[in-house]
Design a protein around this nucleic acid. Sequence first.
DNA 1: ATGCACCCCGTACCGCACTACGGTGTCAAG
DNA 2: CTTGACACCGTAGTGCGGTACGGGGTGCAT
Lengths: 153, 153
Amino acid sequence: MALTIGQVAKQCGIGIETLRFYEREGLIAQPSRPDSGFRTYPPESIRRVRFIQRSKALGFSLKEIKELLSLRVDSVTSCGEVKKRAEEKISDIEKRIHALREMKDALAKLTAACRGKGPTGECPILEALGEPGRTPASEAPETGRKGGGKRWQ
Amino acid sequence: MALTIGQVAKQCGIGIETLRFYEREGLIAQPSRPDSGFRTYPPESIRRVRFIQRSKALGFSLKEIKELLSLRVDSVTSCGEVKKRAEEKISDIEKRIHALREMKDALAKLTAACRGKGPTGECPILEALGEPGRTPASEAPETGRKGGGKRWQ
DNA sequence: ATGCACCCCGTACCGCACTACGGTGTCAAG
DNA sequence: CTTGACACCGTAGTGCGGTACGGGGTGCAT
């Protein structure tokens, strides 16, 4: 019934090292270690790891997942706290979506303006990004460093 | 006319260290260094830094920005290449938006199912994440480590 | 000439989430 | 009893995008 770390790892599609990492980070409990010191996991551990994986997939960081797990442990806390976290995460995700959409719109405008032909010097995309063709600086070969002298020391 | 690193930094709202970092990473050219070894930037550098900042804001990584900049330098390349990168970035951003939307929908479904009252043991959110209330493992006090013996060595 | 702001450098560090390494110990099968 | 798979440990390295530190040297104004 009890599982080795390798079995848990395999069942969760995760590396052994990752499991040890989660343990170090306090995301999963210290498993019992009879006799030889080998970790021995109860089958429930699989669920806990899956909890972590699903939460990750929902955009929670390990830090946040740890908090979520700690809510469960001190069961004085009501379910409302959990709901609050989830709602915060939703608005966080909405912000990220919004930012991405703005990026996308800006980029779309640029690509629409660009014929896609001709030299880079006339590219409206590059122009909009701020570089009006080559810059003197970009040609200046190493004036310091490699070239010549031992200035500085 | 020529600028010190501090002036460039201030004008771009960026740290001096960051500027040196960009230089090390090949994102900005080695500035000239007359006499004392102090970096001396032409005013155009400001534009180059802004290019980087805007590109970052559009979701390009420093690595990608470097590529974008190199396209400009070897001006054999046509503007079409730039357009291609921008379009790839757009679809990349779209993918990210899509993934975030899925996260959001999943979370929204969970919060909708949750009354927000009662103990964590009955929380539909936690349940959906995979943990049906407390787990034995989460109570198990350190069975190894700190507690007792010198197994292993 | 003295003070002080500014700049130089290399190196190390941050947070995140792992991943790898290497030397050693344990278990189960043959 | 040997062999091979598996597990143990601490430490270090990865990639990203910076940020900080400390022990100096310069430039300019007073």
